[in-house]
Design a protein around this nucleic acid. Structure first.
Length: 426
RNA sequence: GGAGAGGUGGCCGAGUCGGCCGAAGGCGCUCGCCUGCUAAGCGGGUAUCGGGCUUAAAACCUGAUCGAGGGUUCGAAUCCCUCCCUCUCCGCCA
């Protein structure tokens, strides 16, 4: 959410900056609604101030044993008026808030111009895509050969876009999670968190999924509870409605969780394989820091996610999302894209974003310097470190051999009980 | 799931028949004084988020907040309703 006063005072500049994303419907109504709100607010406050003054007079009269009937006369009409205006104010207030809640974040100046993903500039690349002297199979075929992916049964029990992992691949999933968490905790200084997978609506408003993207979420029927679409939600909301001590920052959290997404509107996209599922595992990174540090923190966070790809020896590149492709709450995002040889393409495996104070304002996450009078909004960042299913797909494709076996990246060997290779099941 | 108790400032805790209660008192923290050192003592300060004014800040004016929302009332921490949460006992359960 953007700052109300800032939007009012710098409306044209805000509109300009947001237009880099494309059209923002709803913004036009803001100034008018806001003016009405401000007018009502000052009138209501004046009425309340007068009411409070007279009430104090009544109290004094009663205490001194005098008759307060004279003061009291006509007050109930004023009270009715206050109540009516107050209701009007609450309604307009909600309207202004609704507008603000559906306006995306302002792209940072360093976020490149562009309309969609084809405009995302490559910032850097790492590793050489391998050349194969045999026909490359996609991760589905490789996984099937290992008897590790079972989509048929997953569909029967849950429906499309679910997967059952078996045997070596079930273990590989666990190994990947363990490797990633260990790296982030032991080498990058994150605190491991095991959060709830169900959160309430307020938390989702806090991180920006609600109210605008309700259709992307799985909601528990009849309850104010939703399956998390990413661990970003519980991790960032750890400190919702808290004022943090500035000297404790930055805070760095990591968590492994399943993520649940309805994928409404992605029919026909990536229908095969592990790339786009209703449920997938992800290791998430969240950092909460002082405003002046957040861009430095974004580079750091991105580096932590890259380190995992490097450890797994998977070729990847880093792209800077252009304004038109930027996520709702993000001011700047780097996507890490891993090489998938069967597709002959780099595919997103991590997205690292600086949300600046966009989430902090919604979630009321503040920080205060020792001795400072005022608190300020913190900055929040998050990134995948990494998406586990996509990492598995990348390993199956990049590390496959002609005989259908898969040579595991060295870093995974200890996590796979010393095994260096997964062999096809006859 | 059943029965009961309760949610007040960083913490503990008071709040009488609704009326100078944003809230006594204590602890903690902090500033100053005092003091061979430490400890003790004395005095002061110490919730948050808004709106207005201001170039800005401070000061000042003002609104809201005693779990959340609503109601009664001129006026609600105090009365009423709904919800959330915590604790105790019983039942069930990994």
């Amino acid at each position: 959410m953007l700052d109300l006063k800032y939007v009012r005072v710098h409306f044209e500049a805000v509109r300009q900056a947001l237009s880099r994303r494309g059209p923002i419907p709803g913004l036009e109504a803001f100034l008018e609604k806001d003016a009405v709100r401000r007018d009502l607010l000052s009138r209501v406050e004046a009425l309340k101030a007068e009411r409070n003054r007279v009430s104090a007079e009544v109290a004094r009269a009663k205490r001194e044993g005098r008759d307060a009937a004279g003061i009291l006369s006509g007050l109930s009409r004023a009270a009715d008026e206050t109540k009516a205006l107050d209701a009007e104010l609450a309604a307009v207030d909600a309207q202004v808030r609704d507008i603000l809640l559906t306006v995306p974040n302002i792209p940072h100046p360093s976020t490149p111009d562009g309309k969609d993903e084809s405009d995302n500039p490559v910032v850097r690349a790492w590793g050489q895509p391998r050349t194969f002297d045999f026909p490359v199979r996609d991760h589905l075929d490789v996984g099937a050969g290992l008897a590790g992916l079972d989509f048929e049964r997953a569909v029967r029990m849950s429906g499309a876009r679910f997967c059952v992992l078996r045997g070596d691949l079930a273990r590989l999933e666990r190994a990947l999670v363990a490797l990633m968490i260990d790296m982030h905790v032991q080498e990058h200084g994150y605190l491991e968190i095991a959060p709830p997978y169900l959160v309430n609506g307020a938390s989702l408003v806090g991180t920006g999924q609600l109210p605008k993207f309700a259709e992307d979420l799985f909601k528990i029927e009849g309850q104010d509870r939703y399956l998390i679409p990413t661990a970003e939600v519980p991790l960032t909301n750890l400190h919702r409605e808290e004022t943090l001590a500035a000297e404790d920052l930055p805070l760095a959290y990591t968590a492994y969780t399943p993520c649940f997404r309805s994928e409404a509107g992605s029919y026909g996209k990536d229908t095969r394989g592990l790339i786009r599922l209703h449920q997938f595992d992800k290791v998430e990174l969240v950092r909460i820091c002082r405003p002046e540090d957040s861009y430095e923190e974004l580079e750091r966070l991105t580096g932590h996610a890259e380190a995992v790809l490097q450890r797994l020896e998977l070729p990847y590149r880093v792209v800077s999302l252009c304004a038109g492709d930027l996520g709702f709450g993000s001011a700047k995002t780097y996507d890490l894209e891993v090489w998938l040889p069967a597709q002959g393409k780099y595919r997103e495996i991590s997205s690292c974003s600086n949300l600046e104070d966009f989430q902090a304002r919604r979630a009321d996450i503040r920080l205060k310097d020792k001795g400072a009078k005022k608190s300020v909004l913190a900055h929040t960042l998050n990134g995948s470190g990494l998406a586990v299913g996509r990492a598995m797909a990348a390993i199956l494709e990049n590390c496959q051999n002609a005989d259908g076996s898969v040579t595991l990246p060295t870093a995974l060997v200890p996590y796979m009980g010393g095994r260096e290779r997964l062999s096809p099941v006859a």
